[in-house]
Amino acid sequence: MILIAFASGVAQGCGDRNNGAPMPPTGNDDTSRPDTSGQTLCLQLPADPIAPSVARNWVRHWLTVACWPPGQQEDIVLAVSEAVSNAIEHAYREDQFPEVVDVSGEVEAVPGGQRRVTVIVRDHGRWRPPPIDHENRRRGIPLMRACVDTVTIGQPDDDRTGTAVVLRSRVVPALLRALDAPDVDTNPSHVVSTT
């Protein structure tokens, strides 16, 4: 059972703006705001081993539609895949309902005319500190930190249990919107094919 909602258009987010995640620390000059012409990503996946691959496919598609530079796409995809893999390990089965992992993403405009994405991976398992000797986690978290600008891992602010990982990508150039340059592809919804 996979429930997926993929919203594009004016940024809305999945329910509450930050999906219950603690707000990551921001610098004094960081005044990023949702890009009102950008797209949002909203996934709900089962907490089982298929989830990282489903998340990768959707994140790649979402970034391609947003005309993200291909080299930067793979770093973000890798970070999200690691976060979803870790979330699966946090999950525990309850009799009443299956565990799910929420992945939400937003494109943000950054001062200076650039863009970045913020992706939040949220599980609902009982909060527990990661086992220190788990090999994948020892590699997975440093790998995430190398792939994106900031990684914030913590217990969600709301009263639901679980872990939220907030991934903030590196900035990329803004989308070109020069209407007086006929040789520039100005259609932001043009899908760039990826191999």
Binding site: P52, L78, S81, S85, N136, G140, L143
Partner: peptide, 9 residues
């Protein structure tokens, strides 16, 4: 086409 931390390990 994809290699993450499980594969690296």
């Amino acid at each position: 086409t994809f290699l993450g931390s499980p594969g690296l390990q």
